[in-house]
Amino acid sequence: MGTAILWTHAAAGAIWIGACACFAIAGLALGPGSAEQRNFVANAAPKIDLLGLVAAAVLLATGVISLIAAGVLRGFAFSTTFITVLAIKIALFIVMLAAMTWSMRVGAAVRAVIARGRIDAAAGAMTRMVKAHAAIVAMGGIALILGTWLLGS
């Protein structure tokens, strides 16, 4: 069971980071103010973000289960280094989740403005959302490296 939880945890992290990477790549590929960009913000972005949020929830759940399992195996006697690395991973998760929810709020506001006929509203917001998703990808890469270290400790 422990292996299945770890693989699910890793897969959820990969899905979240992959979804954010797809968002950022698509956002960079679309012309500012184009109909494609507006369509992306209105239709595809919420679906990509939902996938990311579901993956983040699975990541959190499997992370807690893994930590409890590791604690039981070790009698909850973790090294200072283990605790430090875990704290960094938790902080990264919180910042990543905050960036994701902020970007989703920006997207919702832009969709509302577009629905009222302001078709020029997507360009600036899209730049901010792409930056947020790119930051999530970078932080997720760091978390993956730290997770690999935790796995070996």
Rank of each mutant, 00 (worst) to 15 (best):
94 I>Y: 03
100 M>C: 11
76 F>V: 11
54 V>Y: 06
79 S>W: 02
110 V>C: 09
114 I>Y: 02
96 M>R: 04
49 D>V: 15
129 M>N: 13
74 R>V: 08
147 G>V: 04
9 H>C: 01
75 G>E: 02
20 C>T: 02
116 R>S: 09
47 K>C: 08
68 I>F: 11
74 R>E: 02
11 A>H: 06
19 A>S: 06
98 A>Y: 03
52 G>P: 10
97 L>F: 11
62 T>I: 03
73 L>R: 14
118 R>Q: 05
81 T>S: 09
21 A>Q: 05
120 D>M: 01
82 F>H: 09
151 L>C: 04
133 H>Q: 14
93 F>L: 14
66 S>G: 14
109 A>D: 13
124 G>D: 13
116 R>D: 12
61 A>V: 15
60 L>H: 11
4 A>Y: 12
19 A>M: 14
8 T>E: 02
120 D>F: 00
116 R>Y: 02
69 A>H: 06
101 T>N: 04
5 I>P: 06
74 R>M: 12
96 M>I: 00
88 I>Y: 00
66 S>L: 15
62 T>E: 05
24 A>H: 04
124 G>V: 07
9 H>W: 01
9 H>S: 09
51 L>H: 03
73 L>F: 08
74 R>L: 14
61 A>G: 15
116 R>N: 11
3 T>C: 05
150 L>E: 03
6 L>N: 08
38 R>G: 13
80 T>G: 12
128 R>L: 09
35 A>N: 03
3 T>L: 05
12 A>V: 09
140 G>D: 00
74 R>S: 15
26 A>G: 15
37 Q>S: 12
76 F>I: 11
151 L>N: 11
125 A>R: 11
138 A>E: 00
141 G>Q: 05
90 I>F: 01
26 A>R: 15
74 R>N: 13
59 L>C: 07
77 A>Q: 05
46 P>N: 07
81 T>I: 14
18 G>E: 04
6 L>R: 08
16 W>P: 00
33 G>P: 13
119 I>R: 14
2 G>W: 06
136 I>M: 07
46 P>E: 05
139 M>D: 01
86 L>Y: 12
73 L>V: 13
111 R>I: 02
149 W>K: 07
111 R>F: 03
47 K>M: 14
76 F>A: 03
38 R>W: 10
122 A>R: 06
56 A>M: 14
28 L>S: 03
149 W>E: 07
102 W>P: 10
55 A>W: 05
111 R>A: 04
126 M>I: 03
96 M>T: 08
34 S>G: 12
42 A>F: 00
9 H>M: 09
106 V>G: 00
139 M>C: 08
137 V>R: 00
118 R>K: 10
138 A>V: 07
148 T>M: 15
70 A>S: 13
18 G>R: 00
69 A>K: 13
25 I>H: 10
51 L>I: 15
55 A>E: 07
66 S>R: 14
142 I>W: 01
119 I>A: 14
109 A>C: 00
133 H>D: 08
94 I>F: 04
43 N>L: 12
130 V>G: 10
2 G>E: 04
86 L>P: 08
96 M>N: 01
100 M>E: 07
50 L>M: 15
149 W>P: 10
99 A>K: 11
68 I>P: 06
109 A>P: 04
42 A>P: 03
47 K>G: 01
56 A>C: 09
18 G>M: 02
123 A>D: 15
15 I>G: 00
